[in-house]
Amino acid sequence: MDVHYVYILTNKNHTVLYVGRTKQLKTRISQHKNNSLKTFTGKYNVDKLVYFETTKYVNNSIKRERQIKKWNREWKINLINGLNPDWKDLTEYI
């Protein structure tokens, strides 16, 4: 069974929220953490994994990513707080 991930990253001050999706979460988070300043996440040091969820099908992950991206900041914060109220880096749990 394939697993697809939808995730939210932030920077150390929690001022930027980035929503993404991937099939290989460990690899993708590693890429974000080693990013150059040429990308959005690199430019704003967005490399702290504060939320992730799994889906069984790629179409569901695409739909969910698009849904969360459209949400306002408060809704995204509430989603994060529901799973990770201390906003700890969840990288060690993947």
Rank of each mutant, 00 (worst) to 15 (best):
R28V: 03
K88F: 01
R73F: 13
L17D: 01
V6H: 05
N45W: 01
D89I: 10
N60C: 09
D86I: 06
N72A: 05
D2R: 13
D86R: 14
L90Y: 04
L90G: 02
R28F: 02
N60T: 07
T91S: 14
S61P: 11
Q31V: 07
R73D: 05
R66H: 15
V6L: 09
I80H: 01
V19T: 15
R73H: 10
S36Q: 11
H32Y: 14
S30H: 09
E74W: 13
G20Y: 01
N45V: 03
E92N: 08
D89E: 11
P85Q: 02
L17E: 02
I94P: 00
M1A: 11
T55N: 13
N34C: 09
K23G: 04
S61C: 13
G82T: 04
L90M: 10
N72P: 07
N34R: 11
V6I: 15
M1K: 13
L49T: 10
T54K: 15
Q67R: 12
H4S: 04
N35S: 15
H32M: 12
R64A: 02
S36D: 14
E74K: 15
Y51I: 08
T27D: 09
V6G: 02
E65D: 06
S30V: 02
N72E: 05
Q24D: 06
G42R: 11
N81A: 04
Y93F: 07
N60G: 06
V50Q: 06
P85T: 04
W87P: 03
G42H: 03
L49W: 11
T10H: 03
D86Q: 14
K63M: 10
V46S: 08
L17F: 07
N11D: 14
T22P: 02
N72M: 04
Q31Y: 07
L25T: 03
I80P: 00
N35F: 02
L9C: 10
T91V: 10
K33H: 07
K88Y: 00
F52N: 05
L79W: 00
Q67I: 07
K70Y: 06
L9T: 03
I80N: 01
W87Q: 10
I62T: 10
M1V: 10
S30C: 07
N34S: 14
T27L: 08
Q24S: 06
I77W: 01
I62Q: 02
T54M: 10
K12W: 05
E65W: 01
E74R: 12
G82P: 05
T27V: 03
N81K: 14
K12Y: 06
T39L: 06
V3L: 12
V58A: 07
R21K: 15
G20Q: 04
I62C: 01
N59S: 13
I80V: 13
T41K: 11
W71G: 00
S30A: 09
K26E: 08
K23A: 07
L37Y: 05
D86W: 00
H14V: 03
R73N: 12
T15D: 12
H32I: 11
K56S: 14
V50E: 08
F52A: 01
I80D: 01
S36E: 08
Y44F: 15
N34W: 00
K48A: 03
V58L: 11
